[in-house]
Computed example of a mutant assay.
Amino acid sequence: MHADDLEFHNVAELRPADGRDGRPLQRVPEEIRERLNEGAQDRMRHPARIELRFVPEDAVEVTLSTIPQRGVTEGTVQVF
Rank of each mutant, 00 (worst) to 15 (best):
1 M>C: 08
1 M>P: 04
2 H>C: 05
2 H>L: 04
4 D>E: 15
5 D>N: 02
6 L>Y: 13
6 L>F: 06
7 E>C: 01
8 F>N: 00
8 F>L: 15
8 F>E: 03
8 F>S: 04
9 H>N: 15
9 H>I: 04
9 H>F: 04
10 N>V: 01
10 N>F: 04
10 N>M: 07
10 N>I: 02
10 N>T: 04
12 A>W: 03
12 A>Y: 09
13 E>Q: 13
13 E>L: 08
13 E>S: 09
13 E>I: 02
15 R>S: 08
15 R>F: 04
15 R>Q: 15
16 P>C: 04
16 P>T: 13
17 A>K: 09
18 D>K: 07
18 D>N: 08
18 D>M: 06
19 G>V: 04
19 G>S: 13
19 G>W: 03
20 R>M: 14
20 R>P: 08
20 R>H: 09
21 D>E: 14
21 D>I: 07
21 D>Q: 11
22 G>S: 11
22 G>P: 11
22 G>R: 06
23 R>M: 02
24 P>K: 04
24 P>N: 12
25 L>Q: 00
25 L>W: 00
25 L>E: 00
25 L>A: 00
27 R>L: 07
29 P>T: 09
29 P>K: 15
29 P>E: 14
30 E>N: 14
30 E>M: 13
30 E>V: 07
30 E>Q: 11
31 E>A: 03
31 E>I: 05
31 E>Y: 12
32 I>V: 15
32 I>W: 04
33 R>N: 06
33 R>T: 10
34 E>Y: 07
34 E>C: 08
35 R>P: 01
35 R>D: 02
35 R>C: 04
36 L>K: 10
36 L>Q: 09
37 N>L: 07
38 E>Q: 05
38 E>M: 11
39 G>I: 07
40 A>R: 08
40 A>F: 13
40 A>Q: 12
41 Q>R: 14
41 Q>I: 14
42 D>M: 15
43 R>L: 01
43 R>A: 00
43 R>T: 00
43 R>P: 00
44 M>F: 13
45 R>W: 06
45 R>L: 13
46 H>S: 10
47 P>I: 03
47 P>F: 01
47 P>N: 02
48 A>H: 07
48 A>E: 06
49 R>K: 06
50 I>M: 12
50 I>F: 08
51 E>P: 01
51 E>D: 10
53 R>T: 02
53 R>V: 00
56 P>G: 03
56 P>S: 06
56 P>W: 02
56 P>T: 07
57 E>G: 15
57 E>V: 11
57 E>L: 14
58 D>A: 11
59 A>Q: 09
60 V>D: 05
60 V>F: 08
60 V>H: 09
61 E>L: 05
61 E>G: 07
61 E>P: 03
61 E>Q: 13
62 V>M: 10
62 V>Q: 05
63 T>A: 08
65 S>H: 00
65 S>G: 02
66 T>G: 03
66 T>I: 13
68 P>R: 11
68 P>S: 09
69 Q>L: 10
69 Q>H: 15
70 R>Y: 01
70 R>F: 00
70 R>T: 02
71 G>T: 09
71 G>I: 03
71 G>A: 13
72 V>C: 11
73 T>K: 14
73 T>M: 13
74 E>D: 14
74 E>G: 14
74 E>N: 12
75 G>R: 09
75 G>F: 14
77 V>Q: 09
77 V>R: 15
77 V>M: 08
78 Q>D: 03
78 Q>H: 10
78 Q>W: 05
78 Q>C: 11
79 V>A: 02
79 V>C: 03
80 F>D: 10
